[in-house]
Computed example of a mutant assay.
Amino acid sequence: MDDDFTAVVERTLVLHDHETGQKGEIRLAIGQPYWTEPGIEAACPVAVHGYFGRLADIRGIDPLSALTLAIKFLETLLEGLPETRTVHWPSGEAYF
């Protein structure tokens, strides 16, 4: 899996680990959708830089589906973090 891709959409947030007291910037990134099998399946590269790193490409039935599912995947991933970790906008306001 190629760790390097050009993001077509990204969002910068701050992850706070309440157990250690550490805060750090994370960057959600989704790359250009591409066909894995023309007319059958497309995928988008995704990453959470500063925390998970590069993740498996998110697949859908076409490029729009892959992009939509990639966005939903990243939101669900952040919502499922342990209670000891919270996500904030760079301004400090809670993300959720």
Rank of each mutant, 00 (worst) to 15 (best):
G39W: 09
I40F: 12
E41C: 11
A42F: 02
A42S: 09
A42D: 04
A43F: 06
C44V: 03
P45F: 02
V46E: 06
A47M: 06
V48W: 03
F52V: 14
F52Q: 14
F52G: 11
G53D: 01
R54T: 10
L55V: 05
L55P: 02
A56C: 06
A56Y: 01
A56E: 14
D57Y: 04
D57K: 02
I58F: 04
R59C: 13
R59D: 03
R59V: 10
G60D: 03
I61W: 02
I61E: 12
D62L: 06
D62I: 08
P63N: 05
S65I: 08
A66M: 05
A66Y: 02
L67H: 11
L67F: 13
L67W: 04
L67N: 09
T68G: 05
L69Q: 11
A70D: 06
A70V: 05
A70S: 10
I71R: 12
I71A: 03
K72Q: 15
F73E: 10
F73L: 10
F73H: 13
F73I: 09
E75H: 13
T76Q: 14
T76P: 02
L77H: 07
L77N: 07
L78C: 09
E79H: 13
E79W: 12
E79L: 14
E79K: 11
G80T: 11
G80C: 12
L81A: 09
L81T: 03
P82R: 00
P82W: 05
P82Y: 01
E83A: 14
T84Q: 09
R85E: 12
R85A: 08
T86S: 12
V87Q: 00
V87F: 06
H88Q: 12
W89A: 11
P90W: 10
P90H: 09
P90Y: 11
S91L: 10
G92N: 07
E93D: 14
A94E: 15
A94M: 13
